[in-house]
Amino acid sequence: MTIIFDGIAYGMLLFILACGLALTLGLMNFINLAHGAFAMAGGYVLVVLTQRAGVPFLACLPLAFLVTALIGALLERTLYQHLYGRSHLDQVLFSVGIIFMAITAVQYVMGSSQQIVRLPDWLQGRVEIAGIGMGVYRLFTIAICAVVAIALQVGLVRTRFGSQLRAAVDDPTVARGLGINVSLVFAVTFAVGSGLAGLGGALGAELLGLDPVFPLRYMIYFLVVVAVGGTTTITGPLLAALILGIADVLGKYYVPQLGAFIIYTLMVLILLWRPNGLFSRAVAR
């Protein structure tokens, strides 16, 4: 049971990390392979702030969100926005380029070793609930991710911005005609997506490990969440992330010799079975 619990924590984390990608992909049809670079940025913000500036851990999480959202907004305005209408090949090339630059830049500034995250005392240790041993930090992670997921769902469905966003995605021309500032909507969405990745990176630095190749190591995981979960809903990626998280933790625990083999094979099989994702609405044709 503890393993399942760990899997859930891992899955929730993957969801927070990947949901920004679902936004950019589903809403802007942009394949941003460099999404993990934003997560890495969040992780390093946390590490630098806690270790070098002595900022309390809890305060770092919103800061990680803000800083990466800001970076995201900046890059969106300067670079990404030129690529929305371009071919997927261009988008892939561009975002792979961003990954490579991010990796080397971080290596240059922070060194290539794994970063150690010091958690505050109250987040360490384990508790036992209903006979299941749970890491306090994992519990904390799950709680935060759950809050974010709910906020996201409410934000998309209930708010004015959410409906503007959906309108902009359905038909940018019509949305513009209705007086919606489409490019602003996209920029904000991109920034929020990046910020969430940053938050996920900060939260996950302790559980996932943090070093410069983070964006590449987890790229496939983020893509799996989105590809399997589909991009039409929030719940799709959430379920996909949970399945992936639990399967990965179970696999590594029970059959460690197979490594990541299970995950990749599972992914290929699922995509073969449902090319448009497990939870996407069936599209005609």
Binding site: G97, F100, M101
Partner: peptide, 13 residues
Amino acid sequence: QFWIGLLLVVLVL
């Protein structure tokens, strides 16, 4: 690797 990345980005832009 940084320069490859830059090259890719510039190439696309």
